[in-house]
Design a protein around this nucleic acid. Structure first.
Lengths: 147, 147
DNA sequence: GGTATTGTATACTATATTAGTCATAATAGT
DNA sequence: ACTATTATGACTAATATAGTATACAATACC
């Protein structure tokens, strides 16, 4: 039940982006440096977020990335869906047809409940929530830079 | 965020075992056949459950496996822990030392909440719950055999 | 005691996934 | 045109998954 680095790093990237929104567009290179993620890998992470309409990119000189919509409209469930695919612990939860037991399988019912519980957390957390939490944790301006 | 087949099959194995408790010990071979899991693989799944004190095995002729404690005392959280290891979506939730950001990281806080939510479902579901659900679903005696 | 039956343990393997790196193309500003 | 920047796709090494195969150990029954 692990989150891959895509989901981990991608969420951190979005939070970093949200925290630097004023200076948009933000350079991937800067995010990479602050978050200590290689630029090449970060490029892979940003692609699905752009395709999913969460991030907007500006190519060329003076370019960079910015949030495509207000941070309070970006739910973590959306982000994880784009980066990791469905959160369902097993395939049959999304598509009963993958297993002939689906109808009668009670373990499947539990995996579905598990999925609902996870979704409850992720769908109720927005990027804005994360930004606020970060500011609450580190009230000093600029303090987040060296982390 | 996928559950591996160990967790999936292992849970099904335990449910099957609980449903056939009266005829203990139950043959792994029979469970394998009913659940359509190869015997060889099932042997891998049962090992950590025995080590974890959930399943008791009897070697030799007329041997087999049985539940080591009442099904109402077997929580799914225990089962998944034994079969999949920690349910934590990222390592830093269990051990802050793996990442220097842990103290100040708000994404980590979310992953921790995610873990709590998952654990809430799994810790509140016992094998007995699954048995009851199965019986509710398939009231006809013997109906569970051909699934 | 011999033998069939059953679980135990270890080694091996094929495939898929993860976590990147690297080179190159496209685009925008100067 | 030149430079800065993101976009894309090919490639790769390491690890995890999902098994299979084989030999071994314990036990019950005759």
């Amino acid at each position: 039940m692990k989150l891959s680095t895509k989901g981990q790093y991608g969420t951190r990237m979005l939070l970093d982006l949200a925290l630097h929104e004023e200076e948009a567009p933000v350079l991937l290179k800067d995010i990479a440096q602050r978050q200590q993620i290689s630029l090449g890998y970060l490029e892979h992470l940003v692609t699905p977020l752009i395709a999913g309409g969460i991030v907007r990119s500006t190519r060329g000189a003076k370019g960079g990335v910015s949030l495509a919509k207000p941070s309070e409209q970006i739910k973590l469930s959306e982000v994880i869906q784009l980066l990791e695919g469905s959160i369902a612990p097993v395939a049959c939860v999304n598509d009963p047809a993958v297993c002939s037991r689906s109808e009668s399988c009670v373990t499947r019912d539990i995996w579905d409940e598990l999925k609902q519980a996870m979704d409850g957390v992720l769908a109720s957390t927005t990027l804005q929530n994360l930004v606020q939490r970060q500011k609450d944790k580190q009230p000093l301006e600029g303090a987040m830079y060296y982390i």
